[in-house]
Amino acid sequence: MAITFPETHATHDDAARMLAMRRAGLWLFFFSETILFGLLLAARFFLTGIEAEPLDQEVGLAITVILLLSSVTAFSGEVAIRKGRQKAASWWFVATIVLGFLFFAGVAYEWSIAHFSRENPFGTVFFAMTGTHALHVLSGLVMFLLLIPHVIKGKFTPTNYWAVQAVVMYWHFVDVVWVIFYPALYLVQGVD
């Protein structure tokens, strides 16, 4: 693994080194965020064991599918950038934003129809986990919104598109978190 650069001096002018550092830095950020989500997940099982209030399974399945699809569109956008198709990429990212917003709206709908209150322990962990995750989705949406003007202006080239990579990786990360949270909240049910 090219983890050292023994032949060159360490400066910030070295594009390859900068890219490697940024990539590794983003991964460290993900590790760090994993602990945050992991503690929330642990709190869910600590407080309520495997008990859960009934949730609307159709809404849960729908928003999960939507979020997974949005990861596909985000990835397609990144591939389009890599192939030099800026315009296609911007449409893929618009699709990602739409799907992300649909997910966000789905969570809001689930909140509005929840029959349990946030004072109930399951309600506490449910609202805290989905809320924290939704905030991350929202920040991802803001990043995509900031990204699209750059894509339209043609700022990214097939060899130089770190900002796109970073935002798409972040989006995948948020998606993976949901892949863990979804079963922990919707599918785990207490045994009577």
Binding site: L39, A43, F46, L47, T48, E119, N120, P121, T124, A128
Partner: peptide
């Protein structure tokens, strides 16, 4: 903060929360 501001009950034993959770975290 969520317990105080949003009325949640991570640590309110009356509602089913558990102060011990805080000590672990």
């Amino acid at each position: 903060l969520l317990d105080r501001v949003a009325g949640m009950s991570f640590f309110r034993a009356v509602e089913g929360g558990d102060p011990l959770l805080y000590q672990h975290i």
